[in-house]
């Protein structure tokens, strides 16, 4: 199948101030995502995975490199038309549903306005569509009238997912979308995401630091550290037969049943990475 996301030689440097060293958030990054697959991006905090996502959706400008979505080059542009067409192609679910939903807007209206921006529907049709979208993420119509504060964390994230689906994009970027949820809710949302992908033939870019989640949902994975892609491949290969010490460290650090901290191993792996 064709690659729906194609990223090559992508660079991005943040300059905080003259006092600080500039931070290379993305260092010659190349990623290809097949249409209809789920690509996981893992790495520690500050590894550049969120920056990659933000460049892809156009929240951040790239310094250099090629980014193409569905064959069209991506630029961070203020042009209204391009923003709209990009919104139809790629959507993002943010980590924190408390921040990504307007606290004074009923959640149904948040989804409604996306429909209004993209489709020529009447008010009644939009209301039906909102109910449909809410039903598809396991919420009922009554939730549409609520303010975000009246919903639980899991419900809010479901709303955020429904909103991301509203514009009917081909790609959804999930930036730590389930990380803030507790484990049982996490499982429900992952299941939901899996079903939605299967039903609609979507492509996911799934950003997480949680390797057990990666095993559950992703087909392929890339491992990032300090803005560079260290390792890439099918989930089974990378997680079961890691090539780099860093990936082994990540796997070693992931809590498992019966896990006990083993200082020696982690220090050994750390020194191996440093060398």
């Amino acid at each position: 199948m064709a690659n729906i996301i194609e990223v090559a030689g992508l660079n991005k440097t943040f300059r905080m101030s003259s006092k600080h060293e500039p931070v290379r958030a993305l260092d010659d990054v190349a990623v290809s995502v097949r249409e209809g697959s789920c690509m996981a991006v893992v790495g520690e905090s500050g590894s550049g995975k969120t920056t990659l996502a933000r460049v892809l959706v156009g929240l951040e400008t790239k310094d250099s490199g090629e980014v193409a979505i569905g064959g069209n080059p991506v630029t961070a542009s203020l042009k209204r038309k391009e923003q709209r067409s990009r919104a139809r192609a790629i959507q993002m679910v943010f980590q924190d549903p408390n921040g990504s939903l307007n606290r004074r807007l009923p959640v149904g209206s948040a989804v409604d306005e996306v429909l209004r921006a993209h489709f020529p529907l009447t008010a009644v049709q939009r209301r039906e569509r909102v109910a449909e979208l809410f039903a598809s993420v396991g919420l009922n119509e009554g939730h549409a009238q609520s303010l975000p504060s009246a919903l639980s964390g899991g419900q809010k994230q479901r709303v955020a997912i429904a909103r991301a689906f509203a514009a009917e994009p081909k790609i959804i970027v999930l930036d730590e979308a389930v990380s803030a949820l507790d484990v049982s809710v996490q499982a429900q949302v992952l299941e939901l995401l899996h079903e939605l992908r299967r039903d609609k033939g979507l492509t996911y870019l799934f950003i997480t630091h949680d390797l057990s989640v990666v095993r559950n949902i992703a087909d392929d994975v890339i491992v990032m550290r300090r803005g560079q892609v260290l390792e890439r491949g099918p989930v089974g290969d990378v997680l079961d037969r890691p090539l780099t010490a860093y990936t082994r460290l990540l796997l070693e650090c992931a809590p498992k049943p019966g896990w006990k901290p083993r200082r020696g191993v982690i220090e050994h792996l750390n020194s191996e990475i440093a060398s």
Binding site: L59, Q83, A87, Q91, F94, S100, V114, A117, R163, A167
Partner: peptide, 24 residues
């Protein structure tokens, strides 16, 4: 983030300002 989210959803600036920023 909610303003960024609305921007990403392709909602125009005037709508975001009046419906999201102004009430807040």
């Amino acid at each position: 983030p909610y303003v960024k989210a609305a921007e990403l959803q392709g909602i125009n600036g005037l709508t975001i300002t009046l419906r999201h920023v102004l009430p807040n």
